[in-house]
């Protein structure tokens, strides 16, 4: 049982990292960023090709994260920025971007899955009666580190404060002279970095392919709804909850239908609280 829980926590950390990126962007720009799947995919491929080209893993990972950040900011600058006043057009643009990014990856690297080797592939930790592969442990560590860093950014820095403000009342933030475009770009930058972290953290477990992020993205959206669109801590809590739920369902009921449990959770939330678990009138970040 505890092994199942540990696996659930691992899954939850993955969901949390991806969901936080989604919810940040949503809080600041009201955009359901489907394109994030493409960001994760391109990050993973960058890490893979850097690693295949001979770079030490740490550098390859950094390259992947940098790629994620760059692609994410590009989606903002080239596309999302122009529909800032038309939130209804956001799903359409998001889908268009996802098509582009996934198929760019397909074009560059082909559709076959590639495996990503990491230095900690063969590590197996044993604590109590529970074992955790090196890859999964690395994910948990990376997730905790990056989320803590984000928390510090949001709560202690001027930029982070501004981002929280923009999510709560965009116009009031603008009136104070906060440069909006920079805030949008920053939200996407952070989301891209988190996407890159997610990519290198779980690419070794699943194969690197243009479609590797689809299921995770779906679950991440459930998390975002669970935690409340725009709430970072909601995304973290929701991620862990969903990870455990899916883990339990997968272990005790049916592994093939893992994401279906997430769907059931989503449906129950939406039926009971159409605005998400922690919905308030103001959108919140952190």
């Amino acid at each position: 049982m505890s092994q199942v829980l540990v696996n659930g926590v691992f899954l939850g950390c993955l969901f949390a990292v991806v969901a936080v990126g989604l919810t940040l962007v949503y809080g600041v720009m009201e955009v359901p960023n489907f394109a994030h799947a493409g960001v994760i995919v391109l990050s993973a491929y960058t890490t893979w090709s850097a690693s295949a080209a001979g770079l030490p893993f740490a550098l390859a990972a950094l390259a992947g994260i940098a790629c994620g950040a760059l692609v994410s900011v590009l989606t903002e600058v080239l596309a999302y920025r122009w529909i800032i006043d038309r939130p209804a057009a956001a799903p359409a643009v998001a889908l268009g971007l996802m098509l582009i990014l996934q198929n760019v990856a397909l074009r560059l690297y082909g559709g076959e899955g590639r495996s990503l080797d990491t230095p900690y592939d063969r590590v197996l930790l044993r604590l109590g009666g529970v074992s955790l592969s090196g890859v999964k442990a690395a994910l948990v560590v990376l997730a905790v580190v990056s989320l803590l860093a984000l928390h510090l950014l949001l709560s202690r820095t001027s930029l982070g404060r501004a981002m929280r403000a923009v999510a709560q009342d965009r116009e009031a933030a603008a009136i104070l002279g906060i440069p909006m475009r920079r805030q949008y770009a920053l939200a996407f930058l952070i989301a891209g970095v988190l996407g890159g972290v997610a990519a290198i953290a779980y690419a070794p477990t699943f194969q690197v392919s243009p479609y590797m992020a689809d299921e995770v993205l779906l679950s991440a959206f459930v998390v975002v709804v669970l935690g409340g669109l725009g709430s970072v801590w909601g995304a973290v809590a929701g991620g862990l909850v969903l990870g455990v739920v899916e883990g339990l369902g997968s272990a005790y009921l049916s592994p093939a239908y893992q994401s279906a449990f997430g769907f059931l959770l989503l449906v129950s939330i939406l039926v009971l609280r159409p605005g998400g678990l922690r919905s308030t009138n103001a959108r919140r970040v952190a």
Partner: peptide, 16 residues
């Protein structure tokens, strides 16, 4: 492979 979808994506964004 995939080029038509890229074109589609770009087209869709432009149209939007």
């Amino acid at each position: 492979p995939g080029v038509s979808q890229i074109v589609l994506g770009v087209l869709f964004i432009l149209v939007t």
